[in-house]
Design a protein around this nucleic acid. Structure first.
Length: 290
DNA sequence: CCCCAGTCCTGCGGGC
DNA sequence: TGCCCGCAGGACTGGG
C-alpha cells in the first residue's frame, strides 16, 4: 500500500543516516520465504559493506540509498514493506538488517509482512537504465500538467486505471488515485482521450494537493495498521480520506451523495456520483475544508 | 502497441 | 466458537 506519500515519509525519516558507513548487512532471522535480494545476498553484502551513505532519494514508490555516489540500494516496499531505524512491528517479518557506524543510528531495517517487496543493489548506470523514462514516468510531484495531458491523453483507458500506470506518472497508487479524482471532480471511468485540457489541469492540481497534504500528515495507515514511518509511528492522512474505503457513507464534499465502490482493472475504486458525474459539466463544489 | 487477467504473499474479516 | 474462503493492491508477466 505504500504510495508516494508513504515512501516519501520513509525517505525523510532516514535522512539521518547520510554520512554513516555500512558496517555489515545480513538477512534477518525470518523463517518466511526470503524476499528477493538482487543481485544475490552475498554480492549485496560484499559490495555495500564499507560504503558511506551519501544521499537518500526516491524513485516513484522506491527509497534509494546512494553509496559513495557510485551505487544505490533500492528498497521497494510494494504492499507491506517498511524501512525503519527502530524496532520493527514484529520480529517475525524482519527481512534485512543493515548495520551502520559513524552516525546517530546503529541500523537500517527492512521489514515486510507479506514479503512481496524487494531490495536491490545497482550501479548508478544500471539504475538509470532500469528506470528510464519509458519504464518509469516523471514523478507525480514534478510532472507538469502539459506532460500529464500528453502522456495520458491519447489512451482509451479510464483515467483511474491510467493514473496507476507508473510508466505514465510515477507514485500514484490505488488509494490516492481515488482521492485525486474526487478532489478534481472527475468520474473515475472517464476515458483519457475524452478528457479535455481544463480537466487535465484540475487533475494535475488535485494530484499535487492530495499528495502534498498526505506527505504533511506522514501518509495513510489503514485499518490493518501496517504502514509506519521510519520510527514505527503511524501516519495520519487516513483521517482525511474523502472517498477511499468509505462506501455507503455520505460524501464529505457535497453531503448529499453516497460514496460508491466499483471495481476497475480488478481494483476497488471509490467515488461520489454527485461530485464526480460522467458528464463533463463541472458540478458545484461545497466547502473544501468541511 | 495497448490493455487486461493472473501471479506472488500474508493476515484479516465475513459468512456459515 | 471455529474454520475457510476471499480480499487487500504493489510490480511484473503472458497472452489476446
Amino acid at each position: 500500500m505504500p504510495e508516494l506519500p508513504e515512501v516519501e515519509t520513509m525517505r525523510r525519516g532516514i535522512l539521518g543516516i547520510v554520512g554513516s558507513r555500512i558496517a555489515d548487512v545480513q538477512r534477518a532471522a525470518c523463517r518466511k520465504r526470503p524476499i528477493l535480494i538482487e543481485p544475490t545476498m552475498a554480492r549485496f553484502r560484499r559490495q555495500t559493506t564499507g560504503a558511506t551513505i551519501t544521499e537518500i532519494g526516491r524513485l516513484g514508490k522506491r527509497v534509494i540509498v546512494y553509496l559513495d555516489a557510485r551505487a544505490a540500494m533500492i528498497f521497494e516496499p510494494r504492499m507491506t514493506g517498511l524501512v525503519l531505524l527502530t524496532e520493527p512491528p514484529t520480529r517475525e517479518h524482519l527481512r534485512l538488517r543493515v548495520h551502520l557506524e559513524g552516525g546517530p543510528h546503529n541500523e537500517l531495517l527492512y521489514w515486510d509482512r507479506r514479503g512481496l517487496g524487494c531490495v536491490r543493489l545497482l550501479s548508478l548506470e544500471a539504475l538509470a537504465n532500469r528506470y528510464d523514462d519509458a519504464t518509469l514516468g516523471p514523478d507525480a510531484l514534478v510532472i507538469t500538467a502539459d506532460q500529464l495531458a500528453e502522456r495520458l491523453g491519447g489512451s482509451r483507458r479510464s483515467i483511474k486505471v491510467a493514473l496507476l500506470d507508473q510508466r505514465a506518472v510515477a507514485g500514484v497508487g490505488n488509494l490516492y488515485a481515488a482521492e485525486i479524482l474526487h478532489l478534481a471532480a472527475i468520474h473515475p471511468e472517464r476515458r483519457c482521450n475524452r478528457i479535455r485540457r481544463p480537466e487535465w489541469d484540475r487533475i494535475h492540481a488535485a494530484m499535487i494537493e492530495v499528495l502534498e497534504s498526505a506527505i504533511h500528515h506522514e501518509g495513510s495507515t489503514l485499518s490493518d495498521g501496517t504502514y509506519r514511518n521510519a520510527l514505527n509511528v503511524a501516519g495520519g492522512y487516513q483521517n482525511h480520506h474523502r472517498v477511499y474505503d468509505r462506501e455507503g457513507k455520505p460524501c464529505l464534499n457535497c453531503g448529499a451523495g453516497e460514496i460508491q465502490r466499483i471495481v476497475q482493472a480488478q481494483r476497488a475504486t471509490f467515488f461520489c456520483p454527485t461530485c464526480q458525474p460522467r458528464s463533463t459539466r463541472r458540478p458545484p463544489r461545497g466547502g473544501r475544508g468541511a
